[in-house]
Nucleic acid binder design. Structure first.
Length: 309
DNA sequence: GCGAGTCAAGGTAGG
DNA sequence: CCTACCTTGACTCGC
């Protein structure tokens, strides 16, 4: 098991998602942001390795306006050495990497234009991971998309569109159950047609499940869609409800009692867990401490003390 | 230097 | 058909 957190580190004084407004777009701004973002990504990964956090989600904002028509700059070529260097450190330290395009990426959209934009956005994500020379265990996670008044048809459309994507994207693509529309059962239907792995989101599952099957059973159904050799250990998203917050809001900091309960529920399995919690690496470190002290967590990937960079 | 308003992209619910 | 809301951080502008 590896433990990780998404995109932002609040301890380090920099972020890997510097951006700007479209109105102020220029090649200079783009290069400047990308320089800062790659430099900061290095620092974050360095911090993570030093602290035993070996799972990380790279921000979709790493390259501002990457798939926007306004941007015709060949950033792939300009920064290929930098990407390659970061990739080498990721591989050397056996860091697990994921990416998560945001809500506007909808491959099952009713309109061809939105599908095309989504396809471009997915290709951008795959390019980043390719430029780093990461194998297919580095994943891109998306939700199934909209329902558009007819879930059956929308699932069919997802499958048709999935089959239109290039191999360099689909080999990295996984789907995640969401909190309102598509639950694990829906994802399983898509998996039976496409063999796309299902990323189990524990919090979303709590908020959106239609049967009496337990978390354990669904966890098992979802995680066994991952092919160990090509996909690596299953990725899992974990978070909990913010106490006294509006429903669905993610907690400010980790609830170790709840996390411990989740670990026990999923005990026999090896997987990598992403903690979607507001205070980011702070909670991830608490969880790491907790898990290392918990003898029941098997296959625990202890800190590799190799120095980065 | 600060706070408020706004930001590429879509969808759903409620009216 | 139209509007509010989802959800988050950070850019940008006006003071």
């Amino acid at each position: 098991m590896r433990i990780g957190y998404p995109c932002i580190n609040r301890t380090i004084d920099c972020t890997a998602n510097n951006t700007f407004r479209l109105k102020s777009y220029s090649e200079i701004r783009l290069i400047d942001s990308l320089n800062k973002n790659l430099e900061c990504l290095r620092k974050i990964l360095q911090f993570n390795v030093e602290n035993g956090l070996l799972f990380f989600r790279i921000s979709s904002d790493l390259v501002p306006f990457a798939s926007h028509p306004r941007n015709s700059f060949n950033w792939q070529k300009r920064f290929q050495e930098e990407f390659k260097g970061i990739g080498e450190h990721i591989i050397k330290n056996r860091i697990r990497i994921s990416m998560h395009p945001d809500q506007f990426t909808l491959i099952n959209s009713l309109t061809e234009e939105i599908f095309q934009r989504s396809k471009n956005e997915l290709e951008y994500h795959a390019e980043i991971l390719d430029l780093m020379n990461l194998d297919t265990t580095a994943k891109i996670q998306i939700h199934v998309g909209g329902v558009y008044g007819d879930k059956e048809k929308s699932i069919e459309r997802f499958i048709e569109r999935f089959n239109k994507l290039d191999k360099f994207v689909t080999r990295r693509l996984v789907i995640e159950n969401d909190d309102r529309l598509y639950n694990v059962n829906d994802c399983l239907k898509i998996n039976s047609e496409t063999h796309i792995p299902i990323l189990f989101d524990a919090f979303h599952h709590k908020l959106n499940n239609s049967t009496t099957q337990t978390t354990q059973e669904y966890f098992k159904l979802a995680t066994r869609t991952w092919n160990e050799k090509n996909d690596g250990a299953p990725m899992v998203d974990y978070s909990s409800q913010k106490p006294d917050g509006p429903p669905r809001q993610h907690a400010e900091t980790i609830d170790l009692a709840d996390f411990g309960f989740f670990l026990r529920q999923t005990e026999p399995f090896d997987y990598d867990v992403m903690l979607e919690i507001k205070d980011k690496e702070k909670s991830a470190l608490k969880a790491l401490d907790f898990a290392m002290g918990d003898l029941r967590v098997k296959n625990f990937n202890k800190l590799a003390s190799i120095k980065l960079f």
